[in-house]
Amino acid sequence: MQYIRDLKKYHWPKGPQDAVRLMMQEPCAEIIAGGTELLVSGLKGKEVNNLIDITRAGLSYIKKDKKTIKIGATTTISELQHAPVFKDFADGIISAAAAKFVSVQIRNAATIGGNLGAAMPSSDLAPVLMALDAKIFVCGKENKEFAINGFYISKRKTVMAPCEIITEIELPLACGDDKTGYAFQKIGRTEMDIALVNGAAAITINAGGEVKNARLSLGSVAPNTIRCLEIENNLLGKKLTRELIAAACDNIAKAIDPKTDVRASAKYRGTIAKVIATRLIEEAYIKAGGKI
């Protein structure tokens, strides 16, 4: 199969600026990283004459300093899964999400930048990165920085302008004495399938077990991965119990907008979203040291 009928030239930029320059200069150009999305469903109906491959542009790395972990955009899902720093960081939710990401073959090619760039509602990394309050660095005419909350604006659309690429994802390291617990959950039809519903949570508690900060994100239940701000607010300042968590998630239907597709009905997704949200909060609270 010739994967792109109109393709004429394949480019290998040496760095992100070089990639941006090529995007501005070449007509009908697209960025390609692992190609696992682009070659399967990413080009429907689009004419593409130029592919700009950024996997040799120096963007494959994981670096840790005192305050942050920085992940280069072309770091593969396998590299995230096996990186020693992600075994413990944030209760291992990055490697847990990477391990649930389809198959070894896809994980060896697929990249974190491609995952965010494709802006699929079923992304397994987006909920995790939202729970971790990640920042996304973008290179274009100028360099920009976005919080992941707000990076997605509508179905398969991000805040990025044309001719911009994601270069780096930055995760803050927890500081201070408060304890934070993290959780990731994914429900799929099979181990291999994309999520019917997925999500992640980060809950910080004080010495008395009261919630000081909460982040809860869900995927596959709206046009993009979402933060559930109202549920988060319902948890603040409280010592959690099962009843309290259930009550906090009662109005989840207001936060989500699930759709019916070949995999599941909107109704099923709505029901499961509540179960997943409850489990995530409970798991993260317990991992933070809270007692339920």
């Binding site: 199969m1 190609g35 696992t36 070659l39 399967v40 592919l51 073959q105 060896n108 090619a109 291999m192």
Partner: peptide, 26 residues
């Protein structure tokens, strides 16, 4: 041809990939 079945698996630089969705130029 869509990265699901693994029948097309080859090892590229030590890593198994689905050759059906892997541009040869890579």
């Amino acid at each position: 041809e869509t990265g699901e079945c693994g029948a097309c698996t080859v090892i590229v630089n030590g890593a198994a990939v689905n050759s059906c969705i892997y541009p040869a130029v890579k």
